[in-house]
Amino acid sequence: MELIRCKDLTIGYEGQAVASGLTFRICEGDYLYILGENGSGKSTLMKTLLGLIAPLSGELVRDPGFSESETGYLPQQTQIQKDFPASVKEVVLSGCLNPSFLKPFLRSAEKKMADESMKRMRVYELKDKCFRDLSGGQQQRVLLARTLCMKKRMLVLDEPVTGLDQETMQDMYRLISDLHKKGITIVMISHDPSAAEKYATHILSFDDGITFETADRYFHREKEEDDGMDH
């Protein structure tokens, strides 16, 4: 099933285009990698997909049966979080937040959802620890647990392995792959093509013009280009 379809999309901030001519679609069960250098517009596209900013022109169609709240989001960590006093439990609970101002408090059902989400991401033992004292990999798992409190059909991850050591990085990739196997659509932003080759089903690349194709075709073409250069 098609979740999101974009046709000739132009994205950017305050009227200033960052990238244009984006045509692609995201179907249920895809593992889409968005590849590109820093500043190429990957993060802008992600914010547009999440509805944080509006597209400048073009078409962005969301399947009527796919609501915005079914999209989970793993943002890059901010400076503020590095010294913020928050326990793991508090961070995960903030994923159960009801956006309505008429529902100010959390119910016990929501607390239970947070507990289960922490168990799934193997951070339940850390629940009373302070978020800022955790290792990079643990922090990412806590933030994933926050997103997965609510049922999600699509997960958008913004460079989730930045700053992690090799082992933790592979662990993180496996964790995301498991979520994908359970049927969650993955949109991953990255500048690391090596992992894309292993996991991606589709590639949206911002390098040398914008291209959208299946992972097989993308890497086949890349290899041919490399071979061409060798001769």
Binding site: K47, L50, G51, L52, E68, S69, T71, Y73, P75, T78, I80, Q81, F84, A86, E90, V91, L93, S94, G95, L97, P99, F101, P104, F105, L106, R146
Partner: peptide, 26 residues
């Protein structure tokens, strides 16, 4: 007290709070 959970969300991670539908501007 009434806004406690929302104040936490908006201070800890404004972008995430906004993406999950909270009216962060308000």
């Amino acid at each position: 007290v009434v806004l406690y959970n929302k104040i936490f969300a908006v201070t800890f991670d404004e972008n995430y709070a906004k993406a999950s539908g909270l009216n962060t501007d308000a």
